[in-house]
């Protein structure tokens, strides 16, 4: 299942003033691997995601992509390097169309001087967005449609499809199955498996433990900012995973 080490953090610490949100955390992600990142509220999952996605700079520690140390100064840096992140509930601009969201930040422009001035090739984006979403297994009615007109599940599908379509190395999904019905959640999990099959590394953050157990290869458990467990998924069942998260189960 696992190829090269693709994305790695070493001894990552993040402080917000006096609060230590992430304390000397280390983890690895291989190509073609899905790693589950779990932990209680306040365990440091969001902070770790923000560091991994370039939204925040860690206070200390190293981030390595393809074995090279990286300092993300903005999400833009991480995206450029092939690391896509889907944030919980806020990945899309609701007033924009599906294709505008899929292409947000990397719009296709018209050829020539018009393109230099930033004029958009909207038709091409509509077609391409539809195609890209279909390819990752997502059927969305029309790419010209405004995201605010989609159902919650459709929105999430677009957001994930967007991330998978653009990611060249790593995709980070923060609670992608939240608020979704069983069938829609199943679709999302399938998209993750597709991404894995494409050789991407996937980091899956979730509270829904059955989903984690269903698709991940490995699970990293955070508690109070520290990595307390990093083991193959096969070593866990629902009960032991919950115990590790809460700290009630002693190894």
């Amino acid at each position: 299942m696992s190829g090269e080490v693709l994305y790695e953090v070493r001894n990552l610490t993040k402080r917000y003033g006096a609060v230590v949100a992430l304390d000397d955390a280390s983890m690895k992600l291989h190509a073609g691997e899905i790693v589950g990142l779990v932990g209680d509220n306040g365990a440091g999952k969001s902070t770790l995601v923000k560091c991994l996605s370039g939204a925040h700079l860690p206070t200390s520690g190293e981030i390595l992509l393809d074995g090279m140390e990286r300092n993300w100064h903005s999400p833009h840096d991480a995206i450029q390097a092939g690391v896509e992140t889907l944030y919980q509930d806020s990945g899309l601009a609701p007033h924009l169309s599906v294709s505008a969201n899929v292409f947000l930040g990397r719009e296709l422009v018209k050829p020539g001087i018009l393109g230099k001035m930033g004029f958009l090739s909207q038709k091409q984006m509509d077609v391409q967005a539809h195609h890209d979403l279909e390819e990752v297994g997502i059927a969305v009615p029309a790419s010209g449609r405004s995201v605010s007109q989609l159902s919650g599940g459709q929105r999430q599908a677009v957001a994930i499809g967007r991330a998978v379509a653009w990611a060249s190395k790593v995709i980070i999904l923060d609670e992608p199955t939240n608020h979704l019905g069983a069938r829609q959640a199943g679709e999302v999990l399938n998209v993750m498996l597709e991404a894995k099959a494409k050789g991407l590394g996937v980091i899956f953050i979730s509270h829904t433990l059955p989903h984690v157990l269903q698709v991940t290869d490995r699970v990293v458990v955070l508690r109070l900012g520290k990595v307390v467990k990093d083991a193959p998924t096969s070593e866990f069942d629902a009960e032991s995973l919950l115990g590790t998260i809460t700290g009630l189960k002693v190894d």
């Binding site: 999400p75 833009h76 990945g91 601009a93 947000l104 930040g105």
Partner: peptide, 12 residues
Amino acid sequence: SNSFAARAAGIN
């Protein structure tokens, strides 16, 4: 519409 999403999409 969503400045967080815009920033996450790499927009300055």
